[in-house]
Amino acid sequence: MALNTPQITPTKKITVRAIGEELPRGDYQRCPQCDMLFSLPEINSHQSAYCPRCQAKIRDGRDWSLTRLAAMAFTMLLLMPFAWGEPLLHIWLLGIRIDANVMQGIWQMTKQGDAITGSMVFFCVIGAPLILVTSIAYLWFGNRLGMNLRPVLLMLERLKEWVMLDIYLVGIGVASIKVQDYAHIQAGVGLFSFVALVILTTVTLSHLNVEELWERFYPQRPATRRDEKLRVCLGCHFTGYPDQRGRCPRCHIPLRLRRRHSLQKCWAALLASIVLLLPANLLPISIIYLNGGRQEDTILSGIMSLASSNIAVAGIVFIASILVPFTKVIVMFTLLLSIHFKCQQGLRTRILLLRMVTWIGRWSMLDLFVISLTMSLINRDQILAFTMGPAAFYFGAAVILTILAVEWLDSRLLWDAHESGNARFDD
Rank of each mutant, 00 (worst) to 15 (best):
H418A: 03
R144D: 04
I274P: 05
A391D: 01
Q29K: 11
G118F: 01
M304I: 08
S301Q: 09
R259D: 15
I299P: 05
M36R: 01
L409F: 07
R221Q: 13
T11R: 08
F333V: 12
F123K: 01
P129G: 08
L200M: 13
L78G: 07
E42T: 06
K57H: 05
A272L: 03
L353W: 14
S65M: 04
G61V: 09
L165A: 13
V313P: 06
G389M: 01
P219R: 15
I319S: 15
P32C: 08
D60L: 06
F194R: 00
L282N: 13
L384G: 02
K178A: 00
G421R: 04
L169R: 01
P390W: 06
M36N: 07
A18G: 07
G118D: 03
S286R: 00
L130V: 14
H237R: 06
T117C: 10
P87H: 05
M120W: 03
L197P: 02
T298P: 14
M164L: 03
R259F: 10
D63Y: 12
V399I: 06
Q382R: 09
I8Q: 10
V331P: 04
F141A: 09
R158L: 15
L234T: 12
A417H: 07
A175R: 01
D416H: 10
I116N: 15
F192K: 11
S372F: 04
G20P: 05
L205I: 10
H90S: 08
A49M: 08
F141E: 01
E228S: 14
F192M: 09
A100Y: 01
M164Y: 03
S420M: 11
K328D: 00
P87T: 07
T110S: 15
T5S: 08
S262Y: 02
Y182V: 14
F369C: 05
L368S: 06
L271C: 13
L255Y: 14
V179N: 01
F333I: 14
D181E: 10
V179P: 14
P81V: 04
S411I: 07
Q295I: 07
D99Y: 04
L208Y: 11
S364T: 08
S119L: 01
P6Y: 08
T374I: 10
Y138G: 06
Q382A: 12
F194Y: 12
P32L: 10
F123I: 02
A397V: 09
D427T: 02
S301L: 03
I360G: 10
L169N: 04
Y394P: 02
V210H: 15
R144A: 13
K57V: 06
T327R: 00
F141D: 00
S301I: 04
D227W: 14
A18R: 06
R380S: 01
G421M: 05
G302T: 01
I403N: 03
L335G: 12
G246E: 10
F393Y: 09
L79A: 03
Y168E: 11
L263T: 10
S262F: 08
R380A: 01
N310D: 09
R59D: 05
K178P: 00
I288N: 01
Q180R: 06
R150Q: 04
T201G: 07
L234P: 11
R158T: 13
D427M: 11
A385C: 10
H418R: 11
A49R: 07
T374D: 00
T9I: 05
D114T: 05
L401E: 11
D99P: 03
F194K: 04
I274A: 13
N101D: 11
A312K: 15
I91S: 01
A417M: 10
S420E: 08
S48T: 08
K13R: 06
V174D: 00
L132E: 02
I287V: 13
L66V: 10
G421T: 04
A397Q: 02
F395D: 01
A398P: 04
L93P: 01
M36V: 06
I91L: 03
A71P: 02
W267G: 14
P129F: 04
C248Q: 00
K342N: 10
L78T: 06
I19F: 08
I274V: 08
I339A: 11
L277R: 01
I58P: 01
S206W: 15
D297W: 02
M356R: 08
A307W: 15
L130Q: 10
G146Q: 05
I98F: 02
I288L: 04
I91Q: 04
L230S: 14
R30S: 05
Q220T: 13
R350S: 06
S308K: 12
Q186I: 13
A268R: 01
T358I: 12
L278Y: 02
V152S: 06
K160Q: 10
I167H: 02
C124I: 03
V16P: 05
F192A: 08
G127F: 01
F326C: 10
L354P: 12
K178I: 00
I330T: 13
V195F: 11
A391L: 01
V357F: 01
I106L: 06
I360M: 07
F82Q: 03
A272G: 11
T334K: 14
C236N: 00
S262D: 08
L413D: 05
L336S: 11
R17H: 06
K328Y: 00
W267D: 08
T202E: 15
Q180Y: 02
L159D: 03
P325H: 06
W359D: 07
C266T: 13
L337E: 08
L69K: 04
